[in-house]
Nucleic acid binder design. Sequence first.
DNA 1: TATTGTTATACTCTATAACTATA
DNA 2: TATAGTTATAGAGTATAACAATA
Lengths: 159, 159
Amino acid sequence: MPAEATIKRIDSHLSRRAKLQKGLLPGLLGSHLHRAEQALFGRMQRILAGHGITPSEFGILLLINDNPGFSQSDLGRAINADRSTVVALIDRFESRKLVQRQPSPYDRRSHALRLTEAGQKAMRDLVPQVQKHEQEILSRLTVDEQTQLIDLLNKISGE
Amino acid sequence: MPAEATIKRIDSHLSRRAKLQKGLLPGLLGSHLHRAEQALFGRMQRILAGHGITPSEFGILLLINDNPGFSQSDLGRAINADRSTVVALIDRFESRKLVQRQPSPYDRRSHALRLTEAGQKAMRDLVPQVQKHEQEILSRLTVDEQTQLIDLLNKISGE
DNA sequence: TATTGTTATACTCTATAACTATA
DNA sequence: TATAGTTATAGAGTATAACAATA
């Protein structure tokens, strides 16, 4: 997202002659999914920004937090990423002191991944805020609609 | 997506002792949205791959197709991207002969963006395939569920 | 033989800052 | 003054291929 976008322009060169035509795009489920995720992640970023964590990173830290000791390859499979990608990812987390590599007690090739104390502290701080944020968004729907939305999304995901 | 992922592993080092714990993640709407989009875009990629177009690029080409003549800045505002990002984006499209820059008849600073003949041809080929694909996915839902899903997603987006 | 983590390398996507030419 | 497009530059994020250590 560009920094300039915070300063909204009311009209554009185009709008002097023609409104932006959304055309076929609004007919596609993909665009609705994309915009919903963008909206949610955009708001989430504001919560996470103070800790320098992206929404995507938050999900990965949550995964490590809930699976202490699992390996880089396990993580790669969980997030569908290449092993070399995970190396770079954990390098970044490690340099920010959020995650640590420990020797695996079972396999001397592996690293056991864990959140550091600072990483755990960040998650203890952020998880309630993220959950509160989700509740704010979901409160636009009735309870029935909330469960149905999750249900329908899972059908799209193929579950 | 890693090429190796096509060869699925049945168990991992972790699963010898403990199953992957999803933990708090499945409680978050964001993860359901993300997975639904991933699933849809992953399938879409297979359709678009022959033309070397990503799902995200397809959406942008659709936008240019439905707004012939609009400027790079207009596009940037529509997709929430920086001007310099749009330059690089259109450079890539131009080198693939999908989009062309023309002098704007109204403003000598601007470029009027249009699909080339080849770009229009690609879209004529792809749009029906993408629409058919969406119908296949959506056919998992009843017609009522389809409209409700779009409706609920728009509420999440804040419309 | 297969897997784990790593490195070297490369490509895409995105942004900021500074510039120019227009408006 | 403000905007449109560009360039130089930089930083994520991702992947492939080849390697050593270990299983």
